[in-house]
Computed example of a mutant assay.
Amino acid sequence: MLRIRLQRRGRKKRPIHHIVVADNRKPRDGRIIEDLGRFDNVTPKNQLTLNRERALHWLKQGAQPTDTVRSIFKNQGIMYEMHLIRWDKSEEEIEEALAEWRQKREEKEEEVPTRKERQQALLEAEEKEFQKQLKKKAEEAAKEKAKQEALAAEEEEDEADDEAEAKTEEEVAEEAETQEEAEQEEPEAEEETQETAEQEESEEVEAEEDSADEDEEPEEKEAAAEAKEDESEEEEDDASEDDAEEEVEASDDSDDGDEDEDDDTEEDSEGQTSSDMLAKEAIEHIENTPLDELEGFVTDDEDRVTVQRALDEKKENS
């Protein structure tokens, strides 16, 4: 039995199908009887070149089209024309019926959006949904923040009340302590006066002894004064060296702090995922980033079709 079917040609990931007439016992890429045209379903418009007269000829001969070829013939009006021929319609009636059928199909095609328009509409819908979710999350975060601020204000008020009560208790205790101290200061003052009198007497005795020593040993005092000056100079040199070492350590600590800040910024930029971006930004990031660095960028929670499609195309092209 004769079959009208598609025969795959072209190259890998870029097929072009030939519409051929062949025996159904032959393999797909085997010998054919006649080539009727080409069908390219990779392009958005599904480009088709077909020999209409030869297709009608083989249909009249009893060749059976496959399901795919039948749908192609149906879209081109060949099956409708074959139906009119079987009903023994004249050529004029067939032409009028086909003209009316083509007009209705054109009106229908104008109403149906193209693949590019459907893609753009899908992208806009996803953007609106994403913006809606972001707005909802922002509102929830604002409510949570207001709730936490209210709780913090209540805690501060409670702490202020507790501090006020504690202060009143401390003031009462301080007043009691001041009274006790005042009572204890009176006998202590008398003891201090006695001690000061005894110290004055001892100081007078020491002063008399020092005056006697100064008269007897002036050379020993000069030697002791020179030794004290030498010790003070050595202490100043040690202090200057310690200050220089502290300045060097401070500069090293500041350099380490700068390096830590740079590392933190790099870790923040690497932790971004597709759910933190708009769909356009996520798609641009996928197109401009090597495939090895995209691992984990598109999370399992990602439900936007355009982002998933961009990642799949990146994997196929690599």
Rank of each mutant, 00 (worst) to 15 (best):
D276Y: 08
L123S: 11
D88M: 05
D23S: 13
E233P: 00
E206Y: 13
A197G: 12
T66F: 02
K147S: 13
D88L: 06
Q272A: 08
Q103T: 11
D23M: 06
P218D: 11
A207M: 10
S90E: 07
E81L: 08
S254K: 14
Q199E: 15
L98P: 09
D230T: 00
I94L: 06
E111S: 10
A244V: 08
A310M: 02
Q272S: 09
K147M: 13
E96T: 07
L50F: 06
A310W: 00
A207S: 11
G62R: 02
I72E: 01
E229L: 01
Q47I: 14
V69C: 04
E203C: 05
T43S: 14
L84C: 08
R11P: 02
N75E: 12
E204L: 15
K12F: 06
K221S: 08
E95N: 13
E144D: 13
A244T: 06
E226P: 00
V305L: 14
I85N: 02
D230Y: 00
A239H: 00
A310F: 01
E313D: 14
S269V: 11
F39D: 05
Q148A: 15
E177W: 07
E154M: 08
A166H: 09
E195Q: 15
E219Y: 09
G271Y: 03
E198I: 09
A152D: 15
I32Y: 05
Q131R: 09
E246Q: 00
L6T: 07
P44W: 02
A153L: 12
E287A: 13
T68M: 06
A164Q: 09
R115W: 10
E139P: 00
R8W: 08
E53N: 05
A160G: 07
E92I: 08
E293V: 06
D303V: 14
N75L: 08
A121V: 02
A197I: 09
K135I: 06
K116Y: 10
E117H: 09
E157Y: 11
E174G: 04
A176W: 05
T306K: 15
P113T: 04
L59I: 07
E186M: 10
E149M: 14
H18K: 04
D255A: 14
R14D: 11
F130M: 05
A153F: 03
E204M: 11
H285L: 08
D238V: 00
E287S: 08
D230M: 00
E229F: 01
R11Q: 12
L122G: 11
S275A: 12
R28N: 07
Q64F: 01
D158G: 10
K26Y: 06
L6Y: 04
R14C: 06
P113D: 04
K315T: 12
T265N: 09
E159Y: 12
W87A: 10
L84Q: 07
K132Y: 02
N288W: 05
F39T: 05
R118Q: 15
A55N: 01
D243A: 14
E295I: 03
Q47T: 15
T193C: 08
Q194W: 09
L50H: 02
E226W: 01
E109C: 04
E235Q: 05
Q194I: 12
R9I: 06
M79F: 03
S90C: 08
K13H: 10
A250H: 00
